[in-house]
Amino acid sequence: MSKSAVALLFVGLFLAGGVISFWKQKLPKGVILVLAIGSVMCLAAGAMRL
């Protein structure tokens, strides 16, 4: 596994945790949506680099 793949997967999981946290805090849906899209993109990029 390359360092970039690990970094992208870590960032994607970190952002996913942020999505869950923001959802529980009842923050605006637009903020949660942008964060979720970023998380999915990081996880996908990390998975493709494996």
Rank of each mutant, 00 (worst) to 15 (best):
F22C: 01
M48S: 10
A44T: 12
G17P: 07
S2G: 14
L9W: 00
K29C: 01
L35W: 09
L33D: 05
V40F: 15
M41A: 15
I37A: 15
L13R: 06
A44F: 13
P28C: 06
G30S: 08
V19Q: 04
P28F: 05
A45T: 08
W23R: 10
I32Q: 06
W23Q: 14
L13C: 11
V6S: 07
K29M: 08
L50V: 08
V34R: 12
A5T: 01
V34F: 11
A5F: 03
G38I: 12
A44G: 09
V40P: 06
A16T: 15
I37S: 14
L33K: 13
V19K: 05
G12V: 00
F22W: 01
L33H: 04
L13P: 00
V31M: 10
S4A: 11
S39E: 10
S2I: 02
V6G: 00
L50R: 01
S21G: 12
A45Q: 06
R49W: 06
L43G: 00
F14T: 15
S39M: 09
S2P: 05
W23I: 11
M41V: 15
L50N: 07
G17Q: 03
K24S: 10
A36Y: 13
G46Q: 02
M48Y: 11
M1R: 05
A5H: 02
A7D: 12
M1Q: 03
F14A: 15
F10L: 02
F10Q: 02
L27Q: 14
L43T: 04
V19A: 07
G18Y: 03
L43Y: 01
S39G: 15
A47Y: 13
M41P: 04
R49S: 14
A44E: 00
F14Q: 10
I37F: 14
I20A: 13
I32P: 10
V19F: 07
G30Y: 05
I37C: 13
F22G: 00
I20V: 15
L15I: 06
A44N: 06
V31P: 00
G18R: 01
L15Q: 11
A36N: 11
V19P: 07
V6W: 00
S4V: 09
G38M: 12
A5M: 05
W23P: 03
V6I: 14
A7P: 01
A47F: 14
A36V: 10
L15E: 09
F22K: 14
V34W: 13
G18P: 04
A16E: 12
K24Q: 12
G18H: 03
L50Q: 07
V19G: 06
C42F: 14
A36F: 15
G17D: 10
I20W: 06
G30D: 07
R49K: 14
G30V: 08
L13E: 00
G18I: 08
S2C: 13
M1P: 07
M1D: 02
F10W: 01
G17I: 13
G30M: 05
S21L: 12
M1C: 05
L15Y: 09
K26S: 08
L50F: 10
I37D: 07
G18S: 02
K3S: 01
V31F: 08
A44S: 11
